[in-house]
Amino acid sequence: MEKIRLKVQIACVALLNLGLFQWQTVCFPVLNCHSCPIAIFSCPVGIIGQFIGLGLIPLSVIGIVAIAGLTVGRFLCGWVCPFGFFQDLLYKVPYIKFDIPRWTRLIKYGVFVGLVVAVPFFLTPGFPAYFCRLCPVATIESAVPWALINGTTDILSLTLRLGILFAIVVASMGHRRFFCKVICPLGAILAPLNRFAMIFPERNDKCTNCGVCNKVCPMETKQGESKFGVYDGAPEECISCLDCRDKCPTEAIKIWG
């Protein structure tokens, strides 16, 4: 399953950034910057922030994200998101591995409310602390390519962005899916909906509570005693990567809930 996921992730990175056409009237619910010269869809986080800056709510964008969240949930994070794939690759780099406290997952909700909603609403989307001005995905896909294509006069801003990107790259090498767990504002939107998602790994009666799934879970969802869902300890974090299914000694996990 890991190899299939790898292939799907590579295909999705290519499909979302082919640049053969631009369909940016539509948001695709993954973190993929629309300012990338070859991006096809719009980034929901960027559009929500920009609309809120105008005092408007982008109904179609929120609707699309909500439909995605209620049907496949954070499966998108695990299988489709290009930055999630990038982090999976980074974690394979030999580097000091470390844990982070569980409360740090709450930071992403603060990032969403603070940097995606409050900053553009009370200040302006042009404010340097607006999420898109700091977003590591935008740095990789937009700021750096455009700086190379057109040159840049805003060295200070670019340096700050590169600094944040570097910090996140280092953190992702040491902790699996660091950005998804701690910072991603789209993850903050999808996480509460993940409890209702139609696709989720579920345990059956073969489960012996051996705890192997707990150990291999990249999102550290901490399964509890209940057999309703593998991730009943922290359902909002499961990205349906199915590493637990691969490693389960009794084949007690199936994907469709």
């Binding site: 982008p58 109904l59 179609s60 964008v61 929120i62 609707g63 699309i64 909500a66 439909i67 209620l70 049907t71 909906l193 209702f196 139609m198």
Partner: peptide, 19 residues
């Protein structure tokens, strides 16, 4: 889930085609 999904669909259709 059904209520939320219906609400999301209405939001998407209204926002996407009528607003």
């Amino acid at each position: 889930v059904t209520v939320l999904l219906a609400l999301s669909l209405v939001m998407t259709i209204y926002g996407g085609f009528f607003r």
